[in-house]
Design a protein around this nucleic acid. Structure first.
Length: 631
DNA sequence: GTGAATGAAAA
DNA sequence: TTTTCATTCAC
């Protein structure tokens, strides 16, 4: 992963910018000595020029975007300079002051930035951002993920993204080619548009940006290349980086400080958090009109014929990371946890236990809350939760692990960070950090949203029944629906184009734009007529329930096939084709040599059977030899 | 092997 | 504050 996509700082601050300025900063790392300083100084000046140019020539769309862009750049690139400037002026400047505030006036900011400018910039210098550092175009799977990740998250609100991704991977694998076609087509279309807009783009034209160690962080890079530093004497401000050293607590952000001061915060989970996890995101990206109908039909169908799965009680070989699962054990705790705990509590009766994941999905309040015996939720980690969810969904991939190993893993992966995370979670559960992502997620599943969806759904079903419009799929204007919902709930709907993502009371918390939604704007709108976000939004969402149903059917077929195969002579089995899932390759697990993969690597049937034959022969030979010895 | 998306958790 | 993770796909 490149640092742009993973770095929170970039997520927060470089959301609208091209990566070029930062890349130019990082390129300085490759040079050495005085040349390095000169180059990096040049790079910094270019960066400043780019910022200036973009600001003054309106390269960015909105005022807010421009503002955040400029602010982000300057706060990152010029902060050290500001420090230097302030230090040379008897620290009159407020180094850490207003630029940290989110709501400062743009005019003030402009003034501030101009004041901060270290060198006269050349506004007439047109900076064309190199296309080779545009982001790679999304492939079909990623488009699919972007479209359906919220759906999975609705079903499993507290499941980690990794777990969501695994589910999405399974979902994708189960799709037929024609079902994938819309995504593959869009990916191809976007790629074509992307390359036409970025003709010089090379997949590996530039090496991946170096990891942002302390040395490569812009603040330190700037120190290296500070024009105030002597060109003949390398600056001593280079950050020292000790590999393996943990973050210095004294340099952590305000949030950490806040947590430290609030370490005694009491855990006050919302006792009445009875909101269901069965929430449909109001985002137009999530469910299009057809999908609402499809889902309603499938919901009805599933209510009649619940899906049952066999129970898998074991874990994957070894969880990769220990992530404590702290706060989600009560009322609103997602159905997944309840479900999987019930699974756990069922002991070893794998075959006969009715594991109905959809019953929990559809009826979270009715889930068995008394089924936590066996594995207490507060001892569960997100990883375990994720594994359990995936295992309960895909028991075919069950790989046993002994209790000892599991307990050992549990023991060895506790850390002080967990405590900090716990405090953080406690703090968030108290509602003191409104606006954070988690509190948004905690609140977005409350009943008012449920009511919204229920209204939409019931109205739609009522309409369908009344008009008996079974063959046609009338378009449902989601914007209008949202407007009507807003009117019903007395909710102020400020921006219909930006779907509300979270609700606290009657107040809409505007969803924070994701990194991709922000940073990709310049890329996604490659051409005036190609907006990837829009195109993704227009794509039909697939039904999660259909996916579960298909998974169930696939499992049944697999079971039948395996039974029939086992009854056949071995020579016959050798000639039988492998199932499609056996031929599916693994993803990153393969290259990362991970063990708990969702789909195992394909095993050559001939080799496999041959080896088993050889093993059998060897066993027989050994038995024969031992028998001779005994005689 | 890398990086596209995603964001919580770990380091 | 930064990196990892989980997935598929294109290069």
């Amino acid at each position: 992963m490149n640092f742009l996509s993973k770095n929170k700082f970039f997520k927060e601050n470089f959301i609208t910018m091209d990566a070029t300025p930062i890349v130019s900063l990082f390129n300085t790392e490759k040079t050495a000595g005085a040349q390095q300083q000169n180059e990096s100084s040049k790079s910094n000046n270019e960066t400043i020029n780019q910022v200036w140019t973009k600001e003054h020539f309106g390269e960015l769309n909105g005022l807010g975007q421009r503002k955040s862009y400029l602010k982000a750049n300057l706060s990152l690139d010029l902060k050290p300079l500001k420090t230097s400037w302030a230090s040379t002026h008897n620290n009159e400047g407020d180094i850490n002051g207003d630029e940290e505030e989110e709501d400062e006036e743009e005019s003030e900011f402009k003034h501030e930035t101009q004041e901060m400018s270290p060198t006269p910039t050349t506004p007439d210098k047109e900076i064309v951002s190199p296309s080779h550092h545009a982001r790679r175009p999304m492939n079909a799977f990623l488009i699919f993920c972007k479209k359906h990740r919220p759906i999975v998250r609705q079903k499993f609100p507290h499941l980690e993204n990794r777990g969501v991704t695994r589910i999405l991977g399974e979902w994708w694998a189960l799709l037929e080619t024609n079902e994938k076609s819309c995504y593959t087509n869009l990916a191809k279309e976007y790629k074509d548009a992307f390359f036409s807009a970025n003709p010089d783009f090379k997949w590996y034209k530039l090496p991946a940006p170096p990891l942002r160690t302390l040395n490569t962080r812009p603040i330190n890079v700037y120190k290296i290349s500070s024009p105030l530093a002597s060109p003949t004497h390398p600056t001593t401000n280079c950050a020292e980086f000790t590999p393996g050293k943990l973050a210095d607590e004294t340099q952590l952000g305000n949030l950490t400080s806040l947590m430290q001061t609030n370490c005694s915060a009491t855990k006050t989970l919302d006792g009445g958090n009875t909101y269901s996890s069965e929430v449909v995101d109001s985002s137009p990206f999530l469910n299009n009109n057809n999908n609402v109908e499809n889902n309603s039909e499938k919901h009805k169908q599933l209510l009649i014929t619940p899906i049952t799965d066999s129970v898998i009680t074991s874990f994957p070989p070894k969880p990769i990371k220990k992530r404590k699962f702290y706060e989600f054990s009560e009322g609103d705790n997602n159905n997944v946890a309840q479900d999987i705990f019930s699974v756990k509590s069922q002991g070893d009766n794998n075959e006969d236990v009715n594991h109905n994941e959809n019953s929990c999905i559809d009826d979270p309040p009715e889930c068995n809350l008394n089924s936590f015996n066996g594995n207490e939720p507060e001892n569960m980690t997100q990883q375990e939760l994720m594994n359990k969810v995936v295992e309960s969904m895909f028991p075919d991939k069950d790989v046993g692990v002994d209790e000892e190993t599991r307990d050992e893993a549990k023991e060895t992966r506790k850390s002080g960070r967990s405590c900090k995370g716990r405090r953080y979670a406690e703090f968030m559960m108290e509602g003191k950090l409104l606006g954070t992502k988690q509190i948004k997620r905690f609140t977005q599943y409350k009943a008012d949203i449920n009511n919204k969806f229920d209204n939409v759904l019931s109205n739609k079903i009522e309409h369908m029944v009344y008009n008996k419009t079974e063959t046609t799929t009338p378009k449902l204007d989601l914007n209008e629906t949202i407007k009507r919902l807003a009117e019903r709930t007395n909710t102020k709907l400020e921006d219909i184009s930006e779907p509300p993502d979270g609700l606290v009371g009657n107040k809409i918390i505007k969803r924070k734009r994701t990194e991709s939604e922000n940073s990709d704007d310049s890329i996604l709108k490659l051409q005036s007529d190609f907006n990837l976000h829009l195109r993704i939004a227009e794509l039909p969402s697939l039904s999660y329930e259909a996916f579960i149903q298909r998974k169930k059917d696939s499992k049944k077929r697999k079971s039948i096939r395996s039974k029939s195969e086992s009854s056949l002579p071995k020579t016959k089995v050798l000639k039988l084709p492998k199932t499609e899932s056996d031929c599916l390759l693994v993803g990153s697990k393969k290259r990362k040599n991970k063990s708990n993969i969702t789909r195992l690597e394909p095993v050559d049937s001939y080799t496999n059977d041959l080896s088993s034959d050889l093993f059998g022969l060897a066993t027989l030979a050994e038995v024969a030899a031992n028998t001779q010895k005994i005689n």
